[in-house]
Design a protein around this nucleic acid. Structure first.
Lengths: 268, 268
DNA sequence: CGGAGTTTTGACCACAGTCAAGCTTAGTGG
DNA sequence: CCACTAAGCTTGACTGTGGTCAAAACTCCG
């Protein structure tokens, strides 16, 4: 069955010509260009799953790969669609969600630069992917996962490691949703964004939130109002600053960690 | 850091001698012995990740594999332990959970016959695994995931498919925890158990619950009392029968599905 | 049978949801 | 350049679902 409670187009993404690759490779300068392979379609460097691969392997990937550009609020694919491709984000932010017939929404993940998503079983995507900001993505055919086992088992192994990592974050998120209070959820969410920024080579603290409060709420199982109240309270308690809705300064990350892990009693 | 808020031993599992394999292979008769490989350490048949593999591949797996028996309530491994092995369940039931310092617990998954678990990144398990009933398990060294990319990429691909499947169930569970009501959660949980029983070749309806209400509660983010109330109400509404606490008869699975998916208004 | 542990039921309560109003910010056009 | 609008964020008052605490009933053992 095709699941699509809210109709709307799926954006195909604008294909970048070869001459545009150069600008892509220099568009993001906040991390050093590492010893990346000769694919040339992205500037992910060590963040890429194909970093440090042999020339032959990477160029065979480059042959099946294509680089796409999306606008903000584009739907990349929809729950129930034929799952023909996996994506690696080069720039921008994506949210992935499931809908219930009455409109309730659960955002199951946010993806940023370097992240890989779109794995699916038996042709149908289990969720919808929508861009939050303008996006540049590397698209790889789903069949690659199968052929890699023959041609480049090492790449397949790397992809598997990413999946194991994703499974671990799901365990954490399930704990958050099942057992944490509103305050703990917001603290955990902000810290996880901070951690991921670090892993991308960005600073941990002036945190940019590309998503709105509604998206945060639908990710951590709360309402917009509760998210807002929790953040205001964290600010009042001196744990963070909110210069603008989309910017968070972590003032006392250790204390925030304590709250996220439930070490600090709610009253404090 | 070693995370172990409640001390207690980790059971090593009793190693089965070769002479005991025969009894293992005939102990469970509820699904036909399929065209399983020559490993001989289990009777999983088509449920096994190594079903229909070449003799050479399977016998190389058999060389590194070992079959273990655990009692009920044994801890197989603990969050923070060195992740040296993955497990395939041959018989029995296992729960996998994370703890918070104050004792809050989130059960992130239940595993049954044929299921595979214990994947981990960077040596440390992200959760604790504890048996619910007596268990028979096939233990495989974690390093296998790496060597398989060289020796048997096809097996690695199958394991990856299992991971993708597990990712999909996490998406569903995150939706359940983030956006469903108590009634919907219980209905969803029972149906998911039923689905999995079917996939194992068991009947969908007289459903055996090896876990207690407390475990169910800690899995679907509720309290024991709320789980109990929700089940009682589903029974009162004629959707299921509860001949005993550990047995559930799904009387109207379609209607139950409607509740699980939020199609039926709460009042009804 | 008896007794421990689990499940169910009941009464009350609190955290987060709902509804509604104000506030801030960014974008638009006069 | 500034009114005007619209969207998103914040704050407030009230409500309801599910949590807490307590006790009764059931199940499953020995």
């Amino acid at each position: 069955m095709a699941i699509s409670y809210r109709a709307g187009p799926v954006a195909v993404g604008r294909r970048l010509g070869p001459e545009e690759f150069v600008s892509v490779r220099t568009a993001h300068t906040h991390d050093p260009l590492g010893d990346w392979g000769p694919c040339g379609a992205c500037d992910l460097g060590p963040l890429s799953f194909c970093a440090n691969m042999g020339r032959g392997t990477v160029s065979s990937l480059a042959r099946v790969q294509c680089t796409l550009r999306y606008d903000a609020q584009d739907t990349m694919f929809r729950e129930g669609d034929d799952g023909t491709a996996v994506y690696v984000l080069i720039a921008g932010a994506v949210k992935v969600y499931k809908l219930m017939p009455d409109g309730r929404r659960q955002i199951t993940g946010f993806f940023f630069r370097g992240d890989m998503f779109g794995f699916c079983l038996e042709t149908a995507y289990a969720y919808t992917a929508e861009t939050i900001s303008p996006v540049l993505a590397c698209r790889l055919p789903m069949t690659l996962l199968r052929t890699l086992s023959q041609t480049a088992p090492e790449v397949q192994h790397r992809i598997m490691l990413r999946m194991i990592g994703k499974l671990a974050t799901f365990h954490d998120h399930v704990l958050l949703l099942g057992r944490k209070t509103a305050r703990e959820r917001v603290a955990s969410f902000l810290l996880s964004l901070s951690d991921r920024a670090c892993r991308r080579g960005e600073p941990p603290s002036p945190l940019v939130l590309p998503m709105g409060r509604a998206d945060i709420a639908d990710h951590i199982g709360l309402t917009v109002e509760t998210v807002s109240r929790a953040m205001t309270r964290l600010k009042r308690d001196g744990l963070l600053d909110l210069p603008s809705p989309g910017l968070v300064v972590l003032r006392r990350p250790k204390a925030l960690r304590g709250i996220a892990d439930g070490l600090t009693p709610e009253a404090a």
